[in-house]
């Protein structure tokens, strides 16, 4: 139901590396699950509105006023790498 190429495409969208020895077993597991949930494709739902969220949800904005926020050093403390006042990441192009 989901083949290796499709799996690699989805993994790419999810920014999740899958190694060669994981592809076949993962494709098989996902296929089993997708086959089960695909039962909902057979239902007649044309006249049914979708529900994204239960209850009344409306925009909820706080007052536009200055309030305290996390100090920079506290926000950066759990980061794997920092430089100056920011999170440090590797170059997109590599070294």
């Amino acid at each position: 139901m989901i083949d290796r190429d499709e799996l690699l495409h989805v993994a790419r969208l999810a920014r999740l590396a899958l190694h060669e020895d994981e592809l076949d077993s993962t494709a098989a597991e996902l296929s089993t699950i997708l086959e089960h949930v695909a039962a909902i494709k057979e239902l007649d739902l044309d006249d049914v509105e979708p529900t994204a969220h239960i209850g009344d949800v409306s925009d909820s904005l706080r007052d536009d006023s200055v309030a305290t926020s996390l100090p920079v050093e506290v926000a950066l403390a759990p980061a794997p790498a920092v430089r100056d006042d920011g999170f440090l990441v590797p170059s997109p192009q590599g070294e």
Partner: peptide
Amino acid sequence: VRYGLRRDESNLDAMYTETRH
């Protein structure tokens, strides 16, 4: 990027995908 595990710093994309792997 902001917390937790980090793997493979050879480039940004490799870091994302291998960290999550």
